[in-house]
Amino acid sequence: MIEVYDLNAGYGKLHILYDVKLKVNDNEIVTVLGPNGSGKSTLLKTIMGLTTIYGGKIIFDGKDVTKLRPDEKAKLGLAYIPQIGNVFTNLTVKENLIMAGLTLDKSEFNDRLEYALSVFPFLKACLDRKVKTLSGGERQMLSMAMALIMKSKFIMFDEPTGNLAPKIATEVLNKIIELREQSKLTILLVEQAARKALEVSDRAYLLVSGRVIYEGSSKELLEHPELGKLYLGVKKL
């Protein structure tokens, strides 16, 4: 689905990612973990085309998308749900859902809207409400409903459970598993809550100071004697 080769990127002259290699196969959930400031969010932004790329390649479905603009990548089926600012607070819920379906024709949008509302039924009651009146958890659910509407095959979530109450966070992660199973999506996940994220994902990458220092199955990382303890705060069961 997506392959990243020797990616070097950052913001302007600020170099953040060094020779990052990453691969996500079809219908896989892959988690990127690492301490604060390790470049996890920058990696997702770079794949989406929001940073400066100094070198390397991003291949999506066999096509080189390294130099494409974010809107061009969105039309190809890449989606990125940022950690914060993932919804338009001054627009209504319905307008946010319309924004998510920009690349779709009307009938396809209506079908997907109906499906998204069946997955997140609480949104039906607040379609005309401004998003700024929703709670943090409701906004996160809205962003996931938007991800369902997007014509995407590959979704990148940046800390979807950040700042959420534990119960809501579990609900959000369960929805991500549902997305993969019901919509046959491929998912790349960046998470601070390491244990929970590893439990829902197939494989994981550990990023430290902008470099990949571990790649393997999530189970192996959870049980790794040193890495889990050092970088993820994961205690061995």
Binding site: L50, D71, A74, T89, N90, A100, L102, M146
Partner: peptide, 14 residues
């Protein structure tokens, strides 16, 4: 209106 609020988010939505 979306570009007015957050042009980066608008761009990733297409």
């Amino acid at each position: 209106r979306a570009v007015v609020e957050d042009s980066s988010l608008a761009s990733i939505l297409g």
